[in-house]
Amino acid sequence: MPALMSDTRRKKKTDPDLDLVTRSQSGDTAAFDELVVKYSPKLYGLIYHMTSNREDTNDLLQDVFAKAYKSINKFQGKSSFYTWVYAIATNMTLNFLKKRNRRRGMSLDDVDSAIEHDQEFIEITSKSDPVRETYIGELQKKLNEAMQTLSDNHRAVVTMYDIQGMPHTEIAKILNLSEGTVRSRLFYAHRQLQTQLGEFWTG
């Protein structure tokens, strides 16, 4: 019994969503709504950067949470809820991309004006002449085009690591890969991006 208690404590410590998940499993829809509010921005980013289409992102995100809600009783706490729901989103998006005809060269939506105050953006624009002369929209377009040259699997890794700042170990768990494979995919993706975005390189 003490071992069980300590195990429960450990789970509570490692998974901050355990309480919400438990309540959701007992039929508390408000608890699941809190999980939706908490994770929809991050999952939106994941799906959007993989699909580059806002309508597809909205539909997929709805499907992801609908699936998570239906399967919540199957969640056994072997991983964190965050990893579990990210895995659902990644698998559904990769399956969607396999079926979808590639729609390249889509126009990007307006960029959030907060980018102008981003420290990294200021740093880039102060170091690199081509970037300084480039409008923000054009830079975003270039980034998006570069992303679209990657394979779906490489784009998933770049999205999680470079854009969302997730560690290798977490990405490996979500994609059910070894950490070495994640690093390898990142290496090849970066080499490919270098050829697309070389003009923006700093240094």
Binding site: Y44, G45, Y48, H49, D109, D112, I115, D118, L193, Q194
Partner: peptide
Amino acid sequence: NDTDDNCQMLMRLKRYETPG
């Protein structure tokens, strides 16, 4: 390396593509 750093710096700019 520098390539990874540069990629990450550029790609992180895509975080601002949010719907609000």
